[in-house]
């Protein structure tokens, strides 16, 4: 039995005979926050639209909590809350009326659920004002509330922090993290901002030109396998590494750099210590997500 909350397989989309999305696949487990990272125009929104049924994939499948979106739209969608490209609401109504209206479209949403969602996003004070007078941050909060009123298991947020000030971004991030932690809601967040993904997500899928080019946990994505030793005799150590482990290392001042399998690292360190080297510092070099992103997307630009 598959436990994925969201399973996207081989999505493809042609718009006006142009291939916008080609073969996008990934899945999300319960309680996971997954980042969907890609530069502007890479196809993030187009993919998310297909996931929430706003547009039909040219080919490929979307499964939400085990329900096929195509065949069991209603069951699938009852588990999803989303904001796609900005929180667009009926601006001639109050925020509360918007929520009431949308709540009535789902089964068994009570007034209490609405009030809870409002409290969660911290909008109690202004909820009865017309949406037209809300700031972007307030709209985004109501947008989040409308995505949460029917207690979905999957939250899909398309560039949710666009147009928010740093304070707003911070608060928004905390709310989303809490949701995942406390209510076990899975979240899919698209973003073109690396820092945002790095700060919020457990895993990341990187998309460029309509293709997923890397899917991994944040930690795995960042490990390069490069290790830096700061020690007393780099020349001798270099020879030792080469003869014992067949590892090519480079010398730079008092440091020695080499790319090694992380699993062999402790063995290597033990050997070095046993051979009498005086190691002051061992560093497992991580690159920034930005480096990774740039290196990946560079290769794939046409």
């Amino acid at each position: 039995m598959d436990t994925s909350v969201l399973k996207v397989s081989h999505l493809k989309k042609l718009i006006q005979k142009k291939l916008i999305i080609e073969d996008v696949s990934f899945d999300i487990q319960a309680g996971e926050i997954v980042g969907f990272l890609g530069p502007n125009g890479s196809g993030k929104t187009t993919t998310l639209r297909m996931i929430v049924g706003l547009s039909t994939p040219t080919s490929g499948d979307v499964e939400i909590c085990g329900y096929s979106l195509k065949k069991e739209f209603v069951k699938a969608m009852s588990n999803v809350g989303c904001i796609i490209e900005g929180p667009d609401l009926y601006d001639y109504m109050s925020g509360y009326r918007n929520l009431e209206l949308l709540a009535s479209m789902s089964k068994d949403v009570t007034k209490k659920d609405i009030d809870e969602a409002v409290a969660l996003v911290g909008m109690e004070n202004r909820i009865h004002d017309k949406v037209a007078v809300y700031s972007m941050g307030m709209k985004q909060r109501i947008g989040l509330a409308q995505a949460l009123i029917h207690k979905p298991r999957l939250l899909i947020l398309d560039e949710p922090t666009n147009g928010l000030d740093p304070q707003g971004i911070h608060e928004f991030r905390e709310i989303v993290k809490n949701l995942a932690r406390e209510k076990n809601i899975s979240v899919l967040i698209s973003s073109h901002l690396i820092s945002e993904v790095q700060l919020m997500c457990d895993r990341v899928s990187i998309i460029n030109n309509g293709r997923i080019i890397r899917s991994a946990s944040i930690d795995d994505a960042l490990v390069t396998g490069e290790v830096v030793w700061t020690l007393d005799d780099p020349q001798k150590a270099q020879l030792l590494l080469k003869s014992t482990f067949k590892v090519e290392a480079a010398i730079a001042g008092h440091t020695l750099r080499a790319t090694v399998d992380p699993e062999r690292l402790s063995e290597i360190n033990n050997t070095l210590i046993a051979s009498g080297f005086d190691i002051t510092y061992v560093e497992h070099k991580k690159r920034t997500l930005e480096d990774l992103f740039l290196s990946l997307t560079d290769k794939h630009t046409i």
Binding site: V74, K75, M77, E85, L89, D91, L102, H150
Partner: peptide, 14 residues
Amino acid sequence: SRKTIKILLTRAVP
């Protein structure tokens, strides 16, 4: 034109 179709059609309603 108000783009509210997005919140209308992403509900559990055919």
